[in-house]
Nucleic acid binder design. Structure first.
Lengths: 188, 188, 188, 188
DNA sequence: CGGTAAGCGAGACGGTACGTCTAGTCTTCCC
DNA sequence: GGGAAGACTAGACGTACCGTCTCGCTTACCG
């Protein structure tokens, strides 16, 4: 029923790409609508026709950034978990801290952004949870604590260091976390 | 040594009160320096002489809002730790999340702010570290992992839930964290 | 020769009516093409197919507004003239000033608009000129000055007050102008 | 009484000069606030602190462009009047018509602008009124019509031609107006 | 009767300007 | 030197408007 000139589908991609670049450079705060539009070679009105505000743009952007990181669980839960946590730590420390912090702040301000951001992490954390559950079933983790809590204790400290204490996220630290949660590896 | 007109000590209080009101109404984003100064009946210069930026003002504001919770370590490290973690969780969940997230974001952008914010948490976290070390020495915690890491695994998940997953910080959750780190209490 | 779907003749009227209403409310400046089209229930394209720009639309609008005010000269030029000038004054003061001013401004910017607007006044002013010439021939006006100049001195002050000094255009003022130009009436 | 940092007096001049240049190039329509500010090397807020809108800026600009034409009344009211009217006509016809029309339009929309614009003409028109009154007292003008009306009939036609009929404002025309109002000069 | 040319509705698009807001710095005078 | 007042820079924000464009549908006339 609603007709008219169809939207140029390429524009959305260009805008999101431009916004991503802006976000990468200056974080949420430093993302300027004018610059995004200019970088995308698009009129500001065209951007606003799609997203009514900066927040909505970022929501869409984050959603579009969810890369499918395929993870293949092996028979070695302990090894899998180490890989996962180290990878997450590496991913976090290779992303500008201010960006992650800005996303957290934007999430806290706008529930829709929050949802979008959580969906962004969902894959990775879901994988961790799955492996932890598996390890628990295999008897590797003796704890009777819910897997979700163990995940919080593996992943939470990473964000904590990043956002609160400012300490570095080394692979060693990630492994130490593993050790603390899983206990020392038993020699065969 | 110090010359010239002494600072009007009442002003600081008026400014912080004004800032608190602004923060209450519009959050970090909606806090306007101009409005704070005007509401306090004070020149903007006077505000900036005390705090170099909006972030620092908010840091000071938060600091002023923090109640000195004197903590007296008892002979029961496990009980002490539980009290501490539950208290921290309660403090965090009673503060608007957006505030904490904005502080983290401001920290990531400006190291000086980061330092201030860290000082804000320092007391509490210091206390936790001390008790954890004590518990470890007392043999309650069998882990050979550094106390700092255990603290990260007690406190980190709280921030993680708050800033990342958005899940609630209940006292039960805090206790579950304790359990996971310390292991089940041994019956005497 | 002419192929394709013929233009809907009713649309032009609806557009002009809509434009007239818009002009009445907000003057030239406040006339928005988008709103005119919407008010007429017509696509913007359809409007632009008829007039290539806002100015041309207004030109057509003004042209369509030319009401034929039939004027029947009597044997009493002085009376006729009074009637005419008072009528013109009344017409001007019953029209929003800003509209007249905007038309003048649009005229100054675009010659085509100017031509159209002048045609709008032409009838009335033509009638005045005719009567003045007649009065001059009848010896009522002693001046040897060209009728056109006398007309300027009768009508010009009306616009002058309206557009420049902002003073009101009362019937009395109109009569005073008459008196000044024609001189006092001779008693028979 | 006036406290705070004083306005930088040089800025006003720079802004007006920039606006004048803009006006010269693109007329009222083509004058962009952003460009004026940029050309003047000044923040837009600084401009808006002085004039609340484009119209007000232009009012000030026009006012600043008005040269103080010192007028010394002689013993020859007829000559004085001729000089004045011819000068006014010259002034009007040397100014872009669209500017004057735009000022009239802006006046009609905003009373404050109207006041400013009237003040702009006040000097000249005041001088004319004074000389007319003097001429009337000296018996040169026999009319018993109020001076203000005579002034309207001398000056009004100039604006009328400019804004309505579009006819040129020649010195001859001005003299004809004089002649019509004052009557033919008596030979000594 | 089917092709084709134009009218039409709906709305996207580029481009540009507007006026408002904010943070933080700077300048001046007063105590 | 502290304080008040406010000017100043820099730049983002979201809205409005104009005139062009791109669709798909509809209506006529023409062969």
């Amino acid at each position: 029923m609603t007709r008219g000139r169809p939207r140029d589908t390429a524009i959305e991609g260009r805008l999101l790409a431009a916004a991503a670049e802006e976000l990468r450079r200056g974080g949420y705060e430093g993302l300027s609508i004018d610059r995004v539009a200019e970088r995308a070679g698009v009129a500001k009105t065209t951007l606003y026709r799609r997203w009514a505000s900066k927040a909505e743009l970022v929501v869409a952007l984050i959603a579009s950034m969810r890369e499918e990181i395929p993870f293949e669980p092996s028979d070695d839960p302990r090894g899998d978990l180490t890989t996962l946590v180290v990878t997450i730590a590496a991913g976090l420390s290779s992303t500008p801290t201010s960006l992650i912090a800005d996303l957290a702040a934007a999430s806290a301000r706008d529930p829709r952004v929050g949802e979008s951001v959580r969906a962004l992490w969902a894959d990775r954390h879901g994988a961790v949870t799955a492996v932890v559950a598996k390890a628990q079933q295999a008897g590797i983790v003796l704890s009777h604590v819910a897997p979700a809590v163990l995940v919080d204790q593996l992943v939470g400290p990473l964000y904590y260091r990043l956002l609160v204490t400012g300490e570095p996220l080394t692979p060693d630290y990630a492994r130490t976390l593993m050790l603390s949660v899983l206990g020392p590896e038993e020699s065969p």
